[in-house]
Amino acid sequence: MTGRTLILILLFAAVLAGGSMYYLQVYAFYDEVPADNAQISLTPLGSDTPEPIEISNFEGIDSESSPIRYRACFRTELPLEEAVDTYKLYDDASPRVAPGWFGCFDAPGIGQMIEDGRADVFLGERNFEYGIDRVVAITAEGFGYVWHEINDCGETAYDGTPLGEDCPPPPER
């Protein structure tokens, strides 16, 4: 009887630990970004100062546990052709997978639209947080998606490599 009891206790503990880890990774650290505080900005050509664009139907999530957990979806009336002529494009951006429950952000689908040329990725704000750029993808249909990318300065700062001359000094800890 004690062997069965011990096995049941171990199984219960394993299921509880597994369920807790799943919940913590997928749900616990994310907070909804209120739509009334939402502002999406793009950096114009010839400038380093982002400018807000008109948006609607904003949905966003963020987490204080990591600077790259931010994801957002929105609609815009800004034509893609006008955006390409006005704002800085961002090369080699790849959308990060969002939790399954955040249904508007389909990273593989967004990536495919970028690859097919149905969407372009723009610089939202460089060094939004040190070493992290906010990027914005806009589709020809007026859908927009936002996520954070680790830039070159961030990669070198986080892996301990000496910073290049074009990187600003990291913030004091």
Rank of each mutant, 00 (worst) to 15 (best):
T2N: 14
T2A: 13
R4E: 10
I7A: 15
L10S: 14
L10Y: 12
F12C: 12
F12D: 03
A13K: 05
A14C: 04
A14S: 06
G18K: 06
Y23K: 00
L24A: 10
L24Q: 15
V26E: 14
Y27H: 11
Y27Q: 00
F29K: 01
Y30G: 11
D31W: 03
E32R: 06
P34N: 05
P34G: 07
A35W: 14
D36M: 01
N37I: 04
L45C: 06
D48K: 01
P50S: 05
E51K: 08
E51D: 02
E51F: 08
E54P: 04
I55H: 09
F58D: 00
F58T: 04
G60N: 01
S65R: 10
P67L: 02
I68Y: 12
R69A: 07
R69Y: 15
Y70M: 04
Y70P: 06
R71C: 01
R71N: 06
C73M: 05
F74T: 00
R75H: 02
T76F: 08
E77Y: 10
L78P: 12
P79G: 14
P79M: 03
L80C: 04
E81S: 14
E81C: 08
E82D: 14
A83H: 07
A83R: 01
V84P: 08
K88C: 10
L89W: 14
D91I: 02
D91A: 10
A93G: 11
S94Q: 00
S94F: 10
P95C: 06
R96A: 05
A98N: 01
A98E: 02
P99I: 07
P99M: 02
P99R: 00
G100R: 07
F102A: 02
F102Y: 15
G103F: 10
C104Y: 13
D106Y: 06
G109N: 12
I110E: 13
G111N: 15
